[in-house]
Design a protein around this nucleic acid. Structure first.
Lengths: 233, 233
DNA sequence: CGCTCGGTTGATGCACATCAAAGGCTGTGG
DNA sequence: CCACAGCCTTTGATGTGCATCAACCGAGCG
């Protein structure tokens, strides 16, 4: 088996992420003990909402979307997880935790899955780590709150914000092209809009040459004009 | 000065809250060192968004709303804080933190304000406490996510949910009457709706005898019918 | 080759927003 | 003590952004 070799590789990978930024390799290994690397293709399910949560983990590469069905059966996308994001750690300390949302891979992705007992035995008693998780949580709250200030904005403004934010998050500040595949439906589900409306906005932009998409890879051609869109409210 | 006496009283008060539930009085005192009790009347500002955050604290009684201006100058209410809620703790560990939202009292309220250095020296190094804060944060995320599943729901459904949730949160499960004053504008700002629309929904309910309001105190008369409203989607 | 999935487009309707006007209530200052 | 301003609520008239419904196309795929 080269399972343990793969795990070692993953450990050196995660040690670069912010959450482990000032820990040595040995500590990181301890935190990732019994970790398993999950490799997902496009649109595979990682965790199903309602299932008992006996593991959590860290996104290594690609992306996962967290979604929750609405009352009438549709889906709402609650969060897009980028590499370095922790999924499920926040609920590990509950008694018999259950996943509050489902997680699906977006394009080929990798995830380091760690059993719950490692959380309870190691993570939970390690102040520095708790602390880092707290930071992750609070930045996630900040994101959700920032999104809330857009509720009254018209759809094009929301989509423009989404594009800019997602570019920053996944590709860094100066990037213009999104490597993870995102469908219009997913954008719609993120805002509670309809696919058709999202399409109408984005195909306008395509026609005007502001953006370009090839098989779900979105590319921003005229960043300045997209930024202009954001100002309409 | 009976400042210290008042502080002692507040400390025994907070020690009942969930966040301190399994700490002894001495520990709680240590965590609340140099705390000051802030007494607010209706609609007074506690923290202003953008101001440097050199303190944080715990809601003792009443309620505070956390709001953030939208891009065009209006307000979005991001969270209602009940007694026992911690305000601002999540950002204490940033360098030169700044409040991401403004906080206003709703009706007469009291707040135990604790200087930032106490957080950095005591709270931050106390695993059990970090842990409790993590729980608070994750339940706040759960709330925000749950709200997100309502984006597509029609306004009456949203308002019904709001009433039920707020009743549970502030008054407990079986209560029917909200003691904190909430205006229709505040409900509207919570959803990004217009005051008029909220009024139209709620005055229908008033006419049908489902609810009753006297000077911003909302009372639910026919809980079952309100629960029915929630099912329309 | 038929199937599903993502994208697209047009026609129609509705749930809200917006605008406008008014009355009650509270506090404030002349 | 009255006038006035500000806030909250209300109601009606009008407009519009977006959902919904329906149909179609192209691409990948078992």
């Amino acid at each position: 088996m080269n399972d343990s070799k793969a795990l070692d590789a993953a450990i050196s990978e995660v040690s670069n992420f912010h959450i482990f930024s000032d820990l040595d390799l040995k500590s990181v290994s301890a935190l990732c003990e019994s970790g398993k690397i999950i490799v997902s293709q496009h649109k595979e399910i990682l965790y199903r909402q309602g299932d008992p949560a006996d593991s959590f983990g860290i996104v290594l590469s690609g992306a996962y979307k967290l979604s929750k069905p609405t009352l009438n059966g549709e889906d709402t996308i609650v969060h897009f997880s980028a590499p370095g994001d922790v999924i499920g750690a926040f609920i590990m300390s509950q008694h018999n935790p259950v996943f509050p949302v489902s997680s699906y891979s977006m394009g080929p992705s990798r995830f380091l899955k760690i059993p719950r007992h490692v959380y309870l035995e190691r993570w939970k008693n390690w102040p520095e780590v708790l602390f880092k998780i707290q930071n992750l949580l609070s930045s996630r709250i900040a994101t959700l709150q920032a999104q809330k200030t857009l509720i009254k904005a018209p759809l094009p403004v929301k989509i423009a914000h989404f594009l800019i934010d997602t570019l920053n998050k996944y590709e860094g500040n100066s990037a213009t092209s999104l490597s993870i595949p995102i469908t219009r439906k997913e954008i719609a589900d993120h805002f509670g809009a309809s696919v058709e409306s999202v399409i109408r906005v984005m195909s306008q932009w395509s026609k005007k040459g502001l953006i370009e998409t090839h098989s779900q890879q979105i590319k921003v051609l005229k960043m300045d004009k997209i930024l202009k869109e954001m100002e309409n409210f």
